[in-house]
Design a protein around this nucleic acid. Structure first.
Lengths: 154, 154
DNA sequence: GGCTGACGGTTCGAATTTGAACAACCCTGC
DNA sequence: GCAGGGTTGTTCAAATTCGAACCGTCAGCC
């Protein structure tokens, strides 16, 4: 193995900033969502994805891909959402194994109710803190970072 | 309440990039650390902070501040590290309530063993993917973001 | 001295997460 | 047809997380 290239001061600053911001923003968002509308951040994410999908439904696998948690974590969250009546399961006609998660009316309503507060918090915690240049650097840089991790890791 | 200012396309790109990168990088790091040296990311963080502190020891509260997890989470992790012999607890002489977490020799050794692989992964996943300009924007922008969240939230 | 309020760390129960194991199913090539 | 290999979603046990409650202690103040 090659000699270790340690992080210089610049790199270290970026790394710890990223690490801290990542943890703090996530925590703050989860807090806000739970207090404001009784949804966890993972649950909110599921609802958002479903609402953006045609017909308000997605296969479990598609939902898990590029999402925060593992397959089993998704099963759990969808079950929770189903108990709350915000989502229901529908089996796929062309593939018996397949399962669609479908956004219910109540789910869409709940999402629309939660969205404004969520967006406001996203602005307050992250977006409105950054300069336009930083915003663009973040979009480009972190976009590339996640693209690579997605490819390389499944 | 004011009209909701939704995210425009630029802002949305930055936000989802941040969200995805945050989750993916964290997951990848945890994976690498666990496979490579049997430490979780939170545990590694604790060791790093201790090793950087004078005397290799810190009060629990100081350790919890600006760290990823809650007080009780820290208690748990320190207990785990103590079981593994990488850290030990020492009560504070001037304040009976206080507890120091002290890095043991084994702990320092384990950290030195784990560090190169960890840094390599940090580079691969994040640092080396970014341009110098992006790196600086990240350091400045996210630094400010976490500073504010720390102040405003405890 | 004794009261009051804040602090430091742990304990507790409940919720969530993960990877591995599993069962059922699809598809391809023969 | 039908064996083999990869998918799909769930189940399971174990680990981790959090917040709230808690106990002992400190500091200021009368």
């Amino acid at each position: 193995m090659a000699e270790t290239r340690w992080l210089d001061e610049h790199e270290m600053r970026a790394w710890s900033g990223f690490l801290a911001a990542s943890a703090l923003v996530n925590r703050r968002l989860d807090q806000q969502l739970k207090d404001d509308s009784g949804l966890s951040h993972p649950q909110y994410e599921v609802l958002v994805r479903l609402s953006a999908a045609p017909g308000g439904e997605l296969r479990m696998t598609e939902l898990a891909n590029g999402l925060i948690n593992s397959k089993s974590g998704l099963t759990y969250q969808v079950t929770q959402l189903e108990k709350a009546g915000l989502v229901r399961r529908r089996s796929c006609p062309s593939d018996v194994r397949g399962v669609f998660a479908v956004l219910t009316e109540a789910g869409r309503a709940r999402l629309e109710e939660a969205a404004p507060g969520h967006v406001a918090m996203v602005r307050e915690a992250l977006i409105d803190v950054l300069t336009p240049a930083q915003l663009e650097a973040l979009a480009d840089g972190l976009g590339e970072v996640s693209r690579r991790l997605r490819e390389h890791g499944g």
